[in-house]
Every structure is written in C-alpha cells, then in structure tokens.
Amino acid sequence: MDINFTLFLILNFFYSYRELITIVILSIFLGIEIIGSVPSVLHTPLMSGANAIHGVVIIGAIIVMGKAEPDNYLALILGFLAVILGTLNVVGGFVVTDRMLEMFKKKKK
C-alpha cells in the first residue's frame, strides 16, 4: 500500500465523517471548558455524574436490540444483556450521584 493510497483513505475517512468529527472536536473543547475549576469536594460527585452520562451508550444497545432479527440469537442475547448493563449504568449512576449530592444540600441551609 503506497503513501498516496493511505493518504487517500485517511482523507476519505475524514470526508465521510466530517460532521461527526466536527462534533467530536467541539465537544472535546467544551468538556475541558466546563470542568475548568471545580472544588475538590465535588470531584467525586462530578465523576459519578459523568459516569451516569456516558450511560448514554444504552441508546446504542437499544438500537442493537431493536434491530436484531428474531432468529439471530447471538444478537438477541447480547443485545438484551447490553440493554440491562446500559440501564444499570444510567439508573445506578444518576441515583448514586443524587445520593452523594443530597448530603451536600442538607448542610447548606
């Protein structure tokens, strides 16, 4: 595979995904901006909240599950498992974060 061809593949990749790549790059900077200066007390709740947010992967699991043909047992079983795991991540993540923050709230008053 010569250099030109490799270059072509890379450019082709960027062209095909140009919109998504734009979102990725902007999101990276946004993520850095948002966290900027956070007091150390909030490190753990913030980590936990972020943990819940990446549970958004569950949407992929739902798509996998919903697209699986009724005779494709591998996809059905794995999809089912993926939706359970994703839900655990989302629900558990948000509830644990809320419990951590509930305690911050109480002492404020």
Partner: peptide, 16 residues
C-alpha cells in the same frame, strides 16, 4: 447525543 455525551465525559473526565 451518544457522540456528545461520550466525548464530553471523555474530555471532562480526563481533566478531572
């Protein structure tokens, strides 16, 4: 939404 959510956590998590 998967893309923004994932990347936000990726970059914010790294900074954290």
């Amino acid at each position: 939404v998967m893309l923004t959510g994932g990347i936000l956590v990726g970059s914010a998590g790294t900074i954290l």
